[in-house]
Amino acid sequence: MKKVLVYVEDGYAQESLSLLEAVRQLYPDQHVETYALLINSDASAIDGVCDVLLTLEDGTLQPFDQKGLCDVFTSVHTRYSFDAILFLATPMGRCIAPSVSMRLETGLVADVTAIANDDGQISLIRPAYSGKIMAGIRIKGEGPVMMSIRIGVFTYQGTDTVQSTNIGLEGLDYRHGNIKVMGTKEKKIPYDIRESDVLISGGAGCSDMESLQDLADLLGGHVSASRAVVDKGIVPRAIQVGQSGKTVSPSLYIALGIHGALQHVEGLKDIPHIISVNTNKDAPICSISDIVVEGDALPFVAKLIRRIKEGQQR
């Protein structure tokens, strides 16, 4: 039997389900007992999915207190001795996982996208070189096996429910780090187009940028723009793609009414799929597109939104 700990961070309970799919692939043919660690976080999404819910309520333990949280993890591990510990690659997960692995003197693999277990020989696949290559990593040493997983990479498929055991963690030995939150402020543009997986990009031939948002939402992406619309002051420079804007590498780029001057195209790096919608099918952008839709951008957007919604209803 294997014992695995998954960290269910506050605010990411639903996303944490994907960690359980990773666990299933890590130990495909073995009985696994899953433990969820919940620190000041709500358990409802994971209740009935993990065998054991370890909960710690302590308002004095601040998020991002790496020292304190690392102490908590090591104390819990000392108590239960896990075979594997999994994190979501959230900003906090990225911070705690390495310190825990260092304390436990074990290896850690970041941003895992695929898992293979060949008779106990574990290999993990992860992107490196800013996503340009994929690397196969072999786990050596005594363990526990540790990894972090990006949100959305694994999809939880389990349907069985279990009777979760709730354990309130008592008497753990941990310190508090010397950090203090002074305040927070929202970002003006709450996303960074360099991080987006899908970009719906509008150019001069796209007279209404706001109507792109719905399509972006449906495809789980964000809106970006070419210089033409930024110059007109319609959208902020922060979402401009190109030489004087940002260089982006989404998996899908939909160019709506964008001519594709070299200055724009220089901002497109390693994009697997490009769709362009243009009244001129010979516009340069079309030459680097998988599919070119010859036509007006906005009516196309409206029609595609309708089609996707239809698909959802069926």
């Binding site: 594709g260 070299l262 195209v265 340069p284 079309c286 030459s287 680097i288």
Partner: peptide, 10 residues
């Protein structure tokens, strides 16, 4: 080289 920057599309 100059063609590449003007005519990347062909």
């Amino acid at each position: 080289e100059d063609a590449a920057q003007h005519f990347y599309h062909f």
